[in-house]
């Protein structure tokens, strides 16, 4: 067992893990942050995407011990402390960018990562950036719309109401 410490959603946390403990297991089982989901075992579906030191990472494809000392952001850290949804989260609701909600945390985290890198992505760039996030419900149409709308809002542009 190894003792690890990291910041998760701005809060210092620590725990004892095995070498084989995955970051997603640490988040879900040790910290009770069950918003990060597991949808596959081959690193493709992206339901487990979180940010590690500011970049999107698949939490099911990273060892918890490897995140020792890191700053981790999960879906639970995306809304304001008073519960106000972030711009991206609000856009997903506004544009019906989710149905069953299972892939949604990973989608939001990947979208946030994209918009950190590229404030003005094209539709094609949004679609390409979601290559590692599978949604089975929405057909992606409204997810893409939501991300484009969130980008526009973050740039300070007015977005037509739906």
């Amino acid at each position: 067992m190894t003792k690890i410490s990291m910041k998760v959603n701005g809060e210092a946390v620590s725990g004892e893990v095995e070498g084989r403990t995955l970051l997603v297991q640490f988040l879900r089982d040790h910290l009770g942050l069950t918003g990060t989901h597991v949808g596959c075992d081959t690193g493709q579906c992206g339901a487990c995407v979180v940010h590690v030191d500011g970049e999107s990472v698949k939490a099911c494809n990273m060892l918890a011990a490897a995140a020792d000392g890191a700053e981790v952001m999960t879906i639970e850290g995306m809304a304001a402390p008073d519960g106000t949804l972030s711009v991206i989260q609000a856009a997903f609701q506004e544009h019906h960018g989710l149905q069953c909600g299972f892939c949604t945390p990973g989608m939001v985290m990947s979208a946030a990562d994209l918009l950190n890198r590229n404030a003005n992505p094209s539709e094609a760039e949004v679609r390409a950036y979601l290559e590692g996030n599978i949604c089975r419900c929405t057909g992606y149409h409204n997810i893409v719309k939501a991300i484009l709308a969130a980008a526009a809002t973050l740039r300070g542009e007015a977005v037509a109401a739906e």
Partner: peptide
Amino acid sequence: IGDPAVRHK
């Protein structure tokens, strides 16, 4: 290569 999250690691 892969997808963004894969490229980050």
